[in-house]
């Protein structure tokens, strides 16, 4: 769905939900995930529907992922060697009394 043109720079490995993904060092993380055919970045916490990057400029928060136990915008982060990225924890269960 998304294709990387001639890769410039060092190829590295990163992880998305423990799956190994190839990326280019220093490239935009959201771009790296899209180029690796990741289509489902997070689920909307209200509707549970899949979401993926919409604006790529830090405004829409659709590309939120978890890094080091924190939610972060993938479009605002660069890929680094061995970066561990995950989908946000499911919040269902908060509302289950």
């Amino acid at each position: 769905m998304f294709r990387r043109l001639k890769p410039q720079g060092q190829k590295i490995q990163i992880f998305f939900d423990d799956q190994e993904i190839e990326a280019i060092e220093g490239e935009n993380l959201a771009a790296a995930l899209l180029a690796a055919d990741v289509t489902h970045f997070r689920s909307n916490p209200v509707s549970k529907q899949p979401r993926a990057p919409y604006c790529m400029m830090g405004a829409c928060f659709e590309c939120l992922v978890e890094i080091d136990g924190q939610s972060k915008q993938a479009c605002m982060i660069e890929a680094t060697v061995g970066l561990k990225v995950g989908t946000l924890k499911d919040i269902s269960g908060v509302d289950d009394e």
Binding site: P45, K89, D90, V94
Partner: peptide, 21 residues
């Protein structure tokens, strides 16, 4: 805060987790 998995069971007068998370 953003919506997070269940962190607290009951509310207090300074902190509570709303049903949306």
């Amino acid at each position: 805060t953003e919506k997070i998995p269940k962190l607290m069971n009951r509310p207090s007068d300074t902190l509570r987790q709303v049903n949306e998370g």
